[in-house]
């Protein structure tokens, strides 16, 4: 794979409008890019023989509410080149209003459930995803609980179930002395 400065030149040339920067932390390169072009960038990283990142290890997201960041949400793609055993991280920044990204399902089928998870917990839509449903929270859940403005203890979901009463056997209940 290319070293950092060459990689910067190559990516910047290909995506002049949406490229932000490349950061380096303990030899892990991270490409920051605006959300709209993430599918093209990932396609380049997958198909270009200089990169050949053939495996999508993970998709996750970060909420930068009230933090100094290019946008509120960052969707993070972890890629792996299985031949050279190299990894790279792509951060796609998406804005707060109607956050949406192109789905990478056409490139990696594994993106199916991973994008559903990001959609479920952060409310980021993936256009072109074949089946964008909630995957972890119940189907009738209303919110996206991993957003930082969602209260930790929820909005009453955990106390909203029918109460089942006892039907048989109450004698011992009157007699509280059972030890």
């Amino acid at each position: 794979m290319l070293p950092k400065d060459q990689l910067t030149v190559v990516i910047k040339e290909k995506f002049p409008d949406s490229f932000l920067e490349i950061t380096d932390f303990r030899d892990m390169l991270t490409i920051h890019i605006r959300g709209e072009q993430v599918l093209d960038l990932l396609r380049t990283l997958k198909t270009d023989p200089r990169f050949a990142f053939n495996f999508l290890a993970d998709i996750t997201a970060v909420d930068h509410l009230e933090m100094d960041a290019p946008a509120r949400f960052a969707v993070v793609y972890h890629l792996l080149n299985q031949h050279e055993v190299r990894r790279i991280v792509v951060r796609a920044w998406v804005d707060e209003e109607h956050p949406s990204l192109p789905s990478v399902y056409p490139l990696w089928k594994t993106a199916d459930w991973q994008e559903r998870e990001v959609y479920d917990l952060f409310g980021i839509e993936f256009t072109g995803h074949p089946d964008l449903r909630r995957i972890m929270t119940p189907d009738d859940f209303q919110h996206h609980p991993l957003r930082k403005d969602y209260p930790l203890q929820g909005r009453g979901e955990r106390s909203n179930f029918p109460v089942v009463k006892r039907r048989i056997g109450s004698k011992w209940q009157e007699d509280k002395s059972v030890q």
């Binding site: 609980p145 955990r158 106390s159 109460v163």
Partner: peptide, 15 residues
């Protein structure tokens, strides 16, 4: 686990 996703005691709903 005092979080949105964990029921705070099943005795809220079951005897």
């Amino acid at each position: 686990f005092d979080t949105y996703s964990v029921v705070q005691g099943i005795d809220n709903f079951l005897p």
